[in-house]
C-alpha cells in the first residue's frame, strides 16, 4: 500500500508537470478505463459487504425483516454451538505445522537441484490446482467403509474402521486432505524464498565445516523465516476460509457438529434455518477474525525481519 501511494504520487506529480495538449482527453479516457471495473466492484462487492453489515442487525428470512440491534451478535457470541464449532475449527490448525514441515522438507530438497527437481516441483503442485470438492471426494472414497484403506486394514487382519462416524477420525482425514492439497503451493513459495538467499552464505558456512543439519538450522531456516511466517499465515487463514469444500463433500459437518467449521456453519445458517441476520453477523465476525489474524501476523513478520 505504501509503495502504491508513493508510486502514484510521483506519477501524479509527473503528470501535472507537463500540461500536454491531450491532457484532458487522457483524464477522460483514464476515467472511462477504470469505470467498468470500479462499478462492478462497487455494486457487487462493496454494496454487498455493507449489506451484510446492515442485515446483521436484522432478524430476516429474506422476505420480512425486523431490526434487532446487536442481538444477533450477542446471541452468536453466547451460542454454545458457535463455541463448539470454533473449537472444531481450531483443531484444523494442526494442519499448519504439518504443511510447514512437509513443504520445508520439499523446498530444501528441491533447492539441492536433485535429479528431476523440476518434475517433482510440478507434481507436488498438482493437488493445489484441483478443486477441494475433487480432493474431498477422493479422500472420502479412499477412507469409505468399503474403501481402499479399510480393505488394507482387513487384509492385515484388522476390523474395518468407520472413519466418518467418529469426530476425531473425521477431523483427521480432513486434516490429511488439507495437508495433501496445500503442501505443493507452500513448497513453491519456500523454494522461491530459498532461491533469493545469497549462495555465498552457504559457501562460507561450508568452509567453516558446518554439517548439513547445522547449516539447515542455523543458516537456511533463519534466512527464510519471513517466508515461513508468510506460509504459516496463509495456511492459518485457509483453515478459516477454505474448509467448506472438504466438509461439504466429506462429512456435511457431522457426525453431529463435530466436523462443522465456521465457513460451513455460515452456509448452513443462511440457507437452511432461514435466518440470514445471524448468518450475516457470524460472517462479519469471521471476516473480522481473519482480518485481525492477517494484521497480527503481518506485524509479527515485520518485527522479526527488523
Amino acid at each position: 500500500m505504501a509503495a502504491t501511494a508513493t508510486g502514484s504520487e510521483a506519477a501524479a506529480a509527473a503528470g501535472s508537470s507537463h500540461p500536454a495538449t491531450g491532457q484532458s482527453g487522457e483524464r477522460g479516457f483514464a476515467l472511462l478505463a477504470v469505470a467498468p471495473a470500479a462499478l462492478i466492484v462497487f455494486l457487487l462487492l462493496l454494496v454487498p459487504i455493507l449489506g451484510a453489515l446492515v442485515i446483521s442487525f436484522f432478524k430476516t428470512d429474506g422476505v420480512t425483516a425486523r431490526f434487532v440491534g446487536l442481538d444477533n451478535y450477542a446471541s452468536i457470541l453466547t451460542d454454545r454451538l458457535v463455541h463448539a464449532v470454533f473449537l472444531v475449527n481450531l483443531q484444523f490448525l494442526i494442519a499448519v505445522p504439518l504443511v510447514l514441515a512437509v513443504a520445508t522438507l520439499c523446498g530444501v530438497l528441491l533447492y539441492e537441484k536433485v535429479l528431476g527437481w523440476r518434475f517433482f516441483r510440478i507434481v507436488f503442485f498438482i493437488p493445489s490446482v484441483l478443486s477441494t470438492a475433487v480432493i474431498g471426494l477422493m479422500f472420502k472414497s479412499t477412507f469409505a467403509y468399503d474403501g481402499p484403506v479399510n480393505s488394507l486394514i482387513v487384509a492385515a487382519g484388522g476390523a474395518p474402521v468407520s472413519f466418518f462416524s467418529t469426530a476425531t477420525l473425521g477431523v483427521a482425514v480432513i486434516i490429511l486432505a488439507l495437508v495433501w492439497s496445500g503442501f505443493g503451493y507452500a513448497t513453491l513459495i519456500i523454494l522461491a524464498g530459498l532461491s533469493s538467499i545469497d549462495r555465498e552464505v552457504f559457501e562460507a558456512a561450508e568452509l567453516d565445516g558446518a554439517s548439513w543439519w547445522q547449516r539447515l538450522w542455523t543458516i537456511t531456516l533463519p534466512q527464510i523465516r519471513r517466508v515461513l511466517m508468510f506460509v504459516s499465515v496463509i495456511n492459518v487463514i485457509y483453515t478459516f476460509t477454505s474448509l467448506f469444500g472438504f466438509v461439504f463433500v466429506m462429512t456435511a459437518g457431522g457426525p453431529g457438529y463435530s466436523t462443522t467449521t465456521l465457513d460451513y456453519l455460515i452456509y448452513t445458517k443462511a440457507f437452511s434455518s432461514a435466518d440470514m441476520g445471524s448468518g450475516s453477523a457470524l460472517a462479519i465476525l469471521v471476516f473480522g477474525l481473519i482480518g485481525l489474524l492477517t494484521l497480527l501476523q503481518a506485524r509479527v513478520a515485520r518485527s522479526k525481519a527488523d
Binding site: 457487487l44 465457513d263 440470514m276 481473519i290
Partner: peptide, 20 residues
C-alpha cells in the same frame, strides 16, 4: 478501493449477493 476488498472471503458475501 480495489485493494481493500481483495481479501474479503466469499462467506461474507453469499447472503447479500444472493439478495442482490
Amino acid at each position: 478501493s480495489f485493494l481493500s476488498v481483495m481479501l474479503v472471503p466469499s462467506q461474507v458475501l453469499i447472503i447479500p449477493v444472493y439478495l442482490l
